[in-house]
Amino acid sequence: MNTLNLAGSARALTKTFQSATTVHALRGVDLDICDGEMTMLVGPSGCGKTTLLCVIAGLLEKTAGDVQMLGQRVADQSARERVAFRRQHVGFVFQQFNLLPALTAAENVAVPLIAAGRKRAAAVKQGMALLARLGMAERAGALPKELSGGQQQRVALARAVIHQPSLIICDEPTSALDAVTGQQVMQLLTEVSMREDRAVVVVTHDSRIFGFADTIAHMEDGRVERVVPHGAPARRAVPQA
């Protein structure tokens, strides 16, 4: 039985894209996301995982239904409110890392702090400290092109958590990495992001990392078909922050 707090929920959530043809990306999604848990969204390509992730994170507006995250009706907010919501409460880990190529690793990590108005020097210093925690102190001054894929994903991970968000959104965090590096990144994700007051949502195709999930939501054709408690067996072996 889940004794954790509810970080957010989606009820009868639909999302339709209007272009040359109408695409029903979400067709009535019901999902609960809990604090202190890693929820994985899995399913075939085009089933609506990323769309659901975007609506939950306040990147896309809903078409119908209800979404509450961290006590806010995100999908009903204005664009400006959603920007502020993302800045304050959400950390992102992207599939392609999306680091700024002209910035060093430490500067990339510091971007969310700088976006929130922190002075550059203080933010970069904090970024360097976090990278040191991730074992990348010596690479803090390197540009992304000088880093390996695993190192870049670690920088992206640090960027996602540096501003202490309550929700971390990960889109295929291991798909660009080999199996060993993928496992290392997931362990690191667990170490730095899992907290009782924080929810982590991961979209993935990579069944090798399912062991890190507390809950796996199986999606198909724009719906959550079933939600399976998974117990995060792989995580039990690593110390949590």
Partner: peptide, 13 residues
């Protein structure tokens, strides 16, 4: 892509 990432992170228009 980078600008999109900044927007996602919460950098205002």
């Amino acid at each position: 892509k980078q600008i999109g990432a900044l927007k996602a992170i919460g950098v205002a228009d």
